[in-house]
């Protein structure tokens, strides 16, 4: 080894660098909120420039509501109109799930970009790059939920729960979508590619929505299936939505649905932050 004289002791011309003394050891709650809002702002800018992100949330409610109502309406409830109170809350929950599914793939794609290297090198809360897009995504859930209800009303649906009940169901859908998005966010931080996230998300999404009471009453199913459908959290969200929109009642199901959402966030948000912080 050709080690040449080591002379770290000899500083060049004396140029004083100001080194701040009082460094925080972690971001405060206030800073975390600000940083999350900044990240949400970035996500909305991105949405505006890639309007195809709004295709699924506009077309799907239109298509699915009409399609399911006309295909299954007669068979399940006798008529389309009678089926609407059953199907609209179901479609709401399904739309919530499919729209929040996109979180995972988008985050995975985003994380491979150079700008995430900078986010990692900045003194910011590790949750901000995840919570920001999740917050901005609420815009998409809102569009999807609103459109679904409007299409239902256009098809002759008259929610029995009145304006307040309908607003309640609408709000619950958005909250559920935001909460469930954390599952997909976590997937986005652990999977190796956007395609992998897409595949796994589908595998989660299909059983959760179709093996629920979203489209058919649970009682009409064989026993073993009914058992799964009854514990499926999506069923609780659907039932809670029905209670709110059709009856205008805040039932125990609403409580269970909210509790389920809170549990999902409490489990998957920390998992996502942990795996994001470890990711290279």
């Amino acid at each position: 080894m050709t080690a040449v004289t080591e002379s770290p002791q000899a500083p060049p011309a004396v140029r004083a660098a100001v080194v701040p003394e009082d460094l925080a050891s972690r971001p405060s709650l206030r800073e975390t909120v600000d940083q999350t809002l900044a990240m949400a702002w970035r996500a909305t800018k991105k949405m505006r420039r890639n309007p195809e992100q709004f295709f699924d949330v506009t077309i799907q409610p239109l298509l699915f509501t009409a399609m399911f109502a006309y295909i299954f309406g007669g068979a399940i409830s006798g008529s389309v109109k009678d089926y609407l109170p059953l199907i609209i809350p179901g479609i709401l929950a399904q739309t919530a799930l499919t729209t929040c599914m996109a979180m995972g793939t988008q985050l995975r794609e985003d994380m491979d970009k150079g700008v995430f290297d900078r986010f990692r090198s900045l003194p910011i809360a590790r949750i901000a790059p995840l919570a920001g897009p999740a917050l901005a995504d609420v815009i998409r859930y809102t569009i999807a939920a609103t459109l679904t209800i409007l299409v239902g009303i256009a098809m002759g649906y008259r929610p029995g729960g009145g304006v307040l009940g309908t607003l309640g169901g609408w709000l619950l859908t958005i909250v559920a979508a935001w909460s469930l998005a954390w599952i997909f966010t976590w997937l986005g931080t652990v999977a190796r590619s956007a395609q992998a996230v897409q595949g796994i998300s589908m595998m989660i999404m299909f059983p959760l929505t179709f093996l629920s009471n979203a489209f058919v009453p649970a009682e009409s199913l064989p026993g073993w299936l009914e058992a799964f459908v009854k514990v499926n959290p999506v069923s609780h969200v659907v039932t809670a939505c029905r209670d709110l929109i059709n009856e205008g009642q805040v039932t125990a199901e609403v409580g269970w649905a909210l509790l389920g959402c809170a549990a999902v966030v409490a489990i998957f948000a920390p998992l996502a932050v942990r795996s994001y912080s470890r990711k290279l």
């Binding site: 925080a24 420039r49 970009k113 900078r118």
Partner: peptide, 24 residues
């Protein structure tokens, strides 16, 4: 977190957001 407050990092590959403008 303290170390990150002391550093400015310009990586080998530009780490800026492609979708945003320079100002943004």
């Amino acid at each position: 977190h303290r170390v990150r407050q002391l550093l400015g990092v310009t990586g080998q590959y530009a780490s800026v957001d492609e979708n945003l403008t320079a100002t943004e």
